[in-house]
Amino acid sequence: MSPTRENVVRIMPDIANEARPVAAGQLAWVGMGEIEAPVRIASPEGGETVAAARVNAFVNLHRPDVRGIHMSRLYLHIDRHLGAEPLSAASLRRLLRDFLDSHAELSDRAMVELRFDYLVRRKALISDNTGWKAYPVTVAATLDRTGFELELGVRVAYSSTCPCSAALARQLIQEQFRQDFGTDRPLDPDAVLRWLGSEQGIVATPHSQRSHADVKVRLSPHAAELPVIDLVDTIEGALKTPVQTAVKREDEQAFARLNGQNLMFCEDAARRMQAALNADERVTDFWIRASHFESLHPHDAVAVAVKGVEGGYGPRG
């Protein structure tokens, strides 16, 4: 009787283990990029949310005589860990330890990177409305013989009103006032009030633009959680003019006031964030890029700030 498919044991080739590389050499990183996976995130209120993430998973290959690593093992670890518990420093450390344990004799360094949007419900400035706001988040963790490192990145959108443009607009308004009211007759307060509320009076306005703050921080080795919302709140609190969600007229007016009270060049924005992060003991190093997408011209105004730790982030992060 010929053997059936069920009772035949197939021995499949394992080229990664059996074959030798054509050219020997150690490799800094080998792994998988853009893995699609859900990630569980603890919310500040004590609940959880789930986000769709893109994951890069890598180990080094320090054996020059071995052709490849076991990529399927990396994928299975990602699948098992990210679905088991909310993302944290401790969960990422365990994930990387499993990367290395499953590649014993091959690797002594492991890295994982995640990108996802953190969706948060934000309150309006004045009205009782709320709305959803998505913050792009990046998380990168490495584990090797020197220890565990964890980096957190966020992008925050905000409004920036140019101080130079504001000064030039004020000058034009002053000139229009002198032209309309002169200097040799008494002023009628009601007439001035009407003039200030007219387009004829406010003949110029400063230009504002939607801007991005891209922030990367290196967290203390003792960090237990991923302070995503804390970092976002720190950046938005420093800038004062984060973009809004639900907006009624009273909210728009409050937003206009915030812009008028927080005129800033990109240099001002970067320094505000720099000062706020310097005061955070959880942050051991950081890289900040303030990008103002100018409405005056087609190129951007950009400023970069770093903490300045030796061996830390460079000008491009």
Rank of each mutant, 00 (worst) to 15 (best):
E149T: 09
V203Q: 04
Y75H: 12
S159F: 06
E85N: 02
T138H: 07
D108R: 06
F177Y: 12
H299A: 03
V154I: 15
G153D: 03
V55I: 11
N60G: 05
R145F: 00
D65P: 03
L296T: 07
I173E: 10
D117L: 10
R271C: 02
R73D: 04
A52M: 06
Y158Q: 03
D268E: 06
N17L: 14
L296M: 13
R67E: 11
T146D: 15
A166C: 11
L196G: 09
D144Q: 07
D230P: 00
A270M: 02
L196W: 06
D230T: 06
F265D: 03
L106R: 13
L172Y: 01
N262T: 13
P3Y: 13
R210Y: 03
L61T: 05
A191P: 00
S291W: 08
F177P: 00
R210E: 08
A223I: 02
G312M: 10
A213N: 02
E113I: 00
V66F: 00
D98S: 13
H81K: 00
V304N: 10
R63G: 03
A279E: 14
S160I: 06
V232R: 06
R218L: 08
E113V: 00
Y75E: 02
E281S: 15
V247K: 07
R289P: 04
A51W: 01
V139P: 06
D101A: 11
E151G: 08
A269S: 11
P186D: 14
A191K: 09
K133H: 15
A89K: 07
D251R: 07
E36S: 15
Q179L: 09
M12A: 13
S107H: 02
H297C: 02
K248C: 05
R210Q: 11
D117I: 02
R249E: 10
L239I: 15
R272L: 15
L187N: 03
Q261T: 13
F99D: 01
L296K: 01
A303K: 08
H297V: 06
E267I: 03
V304L: 10
A275P: 00
R257N: 05
A256Y: 01
N17H: 12
G182C: 05
P64H: 05
S107I: 03
C162L: 07
P227S: 08
A134Q: 10
A90N: 06
S160C: 01
L172R: 13
L76S: 08
A238H: 03
R194Q: 11
L114K: 07
E85W: 01
C162F: 04
A275N: 08
D300I: 02
G33C: 08
R93I: 01
P315E: 14
L106K: 07
L61M: 09
I15F: 13
S88Q: 10
L119I: 12
Y313V: 06
H212P: 00
L172C: 05
Q244N: 12
Y158H: 14
L82R: 04
E199L: 08
V30N: 02
D285M: 04
L95E: 08
I78M: 09
G237M: 11
S160V: 03
V9Y: 04
T205I: 11
D79A: 14
R40F: 00
Y135M: 07
G317S: 09
